[in-house]
Design a protein around this nucleic acid. Structure first.
Lengths: 137, 137
DNA sequence: TATTGTTATACTCTATAACTATA
DNA sequence: TATAGTTATAGAGTATAACAATA
């Protein structure tokens, strides 16, 4: 007999809760919030984006992002500069911002590895591949 | 060359956001919230649990759960009854509660199937299996 | 004294809608 | 008029601690 089917959300929520804690802790260890880290990460990976584009990319919201951007600029980790359309601010991570982001990311990947060690390597790749495929729609 | 490694949370968040909306909508279509559905589901699957145990199982909190339990009792979908330890309330889903829960669940599984149709079947199983394994710690 | 459920409170998060300056 | 960023505000969500009944 087969087990009753479990809601996928119920299966995924505990994992994402652990991952969320990993990112929160890693960011905090380097003086940032998770969202500030996420903003730096997106900005470094795809330079030239404006605020709205980064917000959309992260599934964040443009108004919530403003306080984070203020703080990141205050810390000299990121710059807002007027783009060709002078309504839109182009975001650029500074060298210090990229370094900081990489430090947080190294901690995150280290802790993810610890978590994922429970999985056989095939399943580990399958998890990321499946989630990646699903996220695309 | 290989792509830069992506944070697992960034990969999983978009999927869980979609799943969360699926559950919210399905529960709302039957007059419940997602958490009320989750409570009914856990209570039906493992009868005899008390409030704190259900809260722990769901990753919810005992005080937030109280309003939901009040509402579920008002709707005659669930009962609180004193257990052997008279401090603790044993939760029991009524027949109507189980039916309601199954209706919501059918909607959820239908919409999950629609979402998961994007995946090759092997990846689909791998996703659930991997998440399940990880959730256990 | 510790625990279960409850209540109260404060704090954070989130969503919505204006407002400005550009287009 | 429409859009990008900003600001203000209200509502939902969340965490914490205190309380009553029971162990």
């Amino acid at each position: 007999m087969s087990e009753p089917r479990r809601d996928l959300l119920a299966v995924l929520l505990p994992v994402t809760r652990q991952l969320r804690r990993i990112e929160d802790d890693a960011a905090a260890a380097h003086g940032l919030t998770m969202w500030q880290y996420a903003i730096l990460s997106a900005t470094a990976a795809r330079p030239g984006l404006n605020q709205g584009q980064v917000a959309g990319l992260l599934g964040y919201s443009k108004n919530r992002m403003i306080g984070d951007l203020d703080e990141l600029e205050r810390l000299r980790l990121l710059r807002r500069s007027p783009g060709p359309d002078r309504r839109a601010n182009v975001l650029t991570a500074t060298a210090a911002g990229i370094r900081r982001m990489q430090q947080v990311q190294a901690d995150i990947h280290r802790d993810e590895d610890r978590l994922l060690a429970a999985l056989p390597p095939g399943q580990r790749n399958a998890l990321a591949a499946a989630a990646d495929r699903l996220a695309g729609r």
